[in-house]
Design a protein around this nucleic acid. Sequence first.
DNA 1: TGGTCATAAT
Length: 687
Amino acid sequence: MFLLPPHLTTPFPSTRSTNYFPTTRHHQPPPPSAANPLISSSVATATPLIADEGPNDILPLQNRRYDFTPLLNFLSSDSNSEPENNSSSPTQLDPTEFQLAESYRAVPAPLWHGLLKSLCSSSSSIGLAYAVVSWLQKHNLCFSYELLYSILIHALGRNEKLYEAFLLSQRQVLTPLTYNALIGACARNGDLEKALNLMSRMRRDGFQPDFVNYSSIIQSLSRSNRIDSPILQKLYREIESDKIEADAHLLNDIILGFSKAGDATRALKFLAMAQGNGLSPKSGTLVAVILALGNSGRTVEAEALFEEIKDNGLEPRTKAYNALLAGYVKMGSLKDAEFIVSEMERSGVLPDEQTYSLLVDAYAHAGRWESARIVLKEMEACNLLPNSHIYSRILASYRDKGEWQKSFQVLKEMRNSGVQPDRQFYNVMIDTFGKHNILDHAMATFERMLSEGIMPDTVTWNTLIDCHCKSGRHDRAEELFDEMQQKGYSPCVMTYNIMINSMGEQERWDEVTKLLTRMQSQGVLPNAVTYTTLVDIYGRSGRFGDAIECLEVLKSTGFKPTPTMYNALINAYAQRGLSEQAVNAFRMMTTEGLTPSLLALNSLVNAFGEDRRETEAFAVLQYMKENGLEPDVVTYTTLMKALIRVEKFDKVPAVYEEMVMSGCTPDRKARAMLRSALRYMKQRLNS
DNA sequence: TGGTCATAAT
């Protein structure tokens, strides 16, 4: 088995030649006035320039007090500005260049910074930017060159030119300032792997990563929605071991990160820590925590936090109400949702598109299409136009209720209202067909989207690939995976997770390894789902050694396995009736300080049931009751299955009875289990 | 801004 090592030592890009900058310079068009820059236009004047002089991307600078064109023209043509050749001192220069330098003596530093940022925005002028820095250094025209380099790196990072940033950094000894800029550039470009590598390199060089590094990484993860709880936990452990005291900003980022990762428990923990230190997080962060609480069904706590905003003397605004509303919509509590909206009205807080969208969501989810329609009308009355987003939510509701046929009606309705479907809408539509195994509709929707000139994104490809996997069309999924890359789309973690799952289902272990290697080479970091998937696929195939090794590797890299990973392992043992091993996995989980969920215990019930140890299965039920975990339909159904396995059919009805008495609503599978027990009893009577 | 896609129980 193969797994990704902890800190992948990705080399810095060094394969391309280091004379990258000089060569790009030759791509500059020869400047018309290069022959005598001092004569062609005066320096340091307010005179506006002719537009076609110099690179186009610095046009905004021409409105400023200083005219950099002569300098840029000079640097574009003059080979003396090569950094390699600038050993000569300014006094040895030809008088023209000296005079040019003198004319820029009074330029304030921020203007140089602005010039550099501007030059970095276009590939064709990056070389020029570097030449400017070298030239400034040569003529002692700007105070801190370290700062200039970090500005260059930062600007390159902003402009998604990470590769160039790395090349540039290779020309300098890395200082804390340039390290920070580089780490920031990596974070901004979502290259967490490189950012983390740089942090450890920084430590090796004897520099202490500071909270800004951590902040930029966490912010980048949050922003790109790529954050997950284990990675943030690991980062926090590093913060602790770096002995960095989390300040208000960093704590804010951490709370926001855990919220976005859906880990409401840890978000609350750090919120308490911040408040304990007398710090109050930004209101947007509190809203994110409310959202996370609501999303995990913890609406009571969400409401408590909402009230806390009020207690702090702040008036909750639309966003805060929306977050609370989202929780109730998520749990399908229409009454509470309606109450929140009326509270908004009462408090004079205006609903926005999001509010209406959530309300429409709530009605559509409850199957009250007419009410949803009224909300849309009301929305228009408030001068808020229904958009593609709101219709995509409606479609998602239909999808989740199994009513894929409604897709066409939704499409028609939105067109009638003058709303054009956008990419996200089509993504949901493809997913709707895909989730119901109507692959030709899914593909037709994809074609339709293309024919309307809407470009797919990674989500579109992921959706298509996954729905083919789910329908067992692994061959087509693989083709689509290749196709997306041929068309220039880079697979993301999710794509890889889908493909790993697919290969695992097919037991093509070499392919699983290949995918992991490719992830690594492309700098795509595996996340919690990747590991859960690996544990799951190995476990399901009885490769328990590999499954456990996954968890060990994970732990050795400073991550903690999530409860979900253990659930996958326990489930794998359970399905093969290996109850002893299932119990062991369960114990491992509790030893790690993880609280077993109902899901883990249900798997344990199943493990005993499949191992014909129904007494122990019922002991787990007892354990649940004693530990305040409410058994659910799955628990009782699994117990009934356990009884059937040992042919104690006559005891099944009592379990069914208890299920109903304890307030569980029997579902289709529960009823089927009872029915089959009754059938066996009848058979036994007849024989 | 947001909204869409991936993992674990009968």
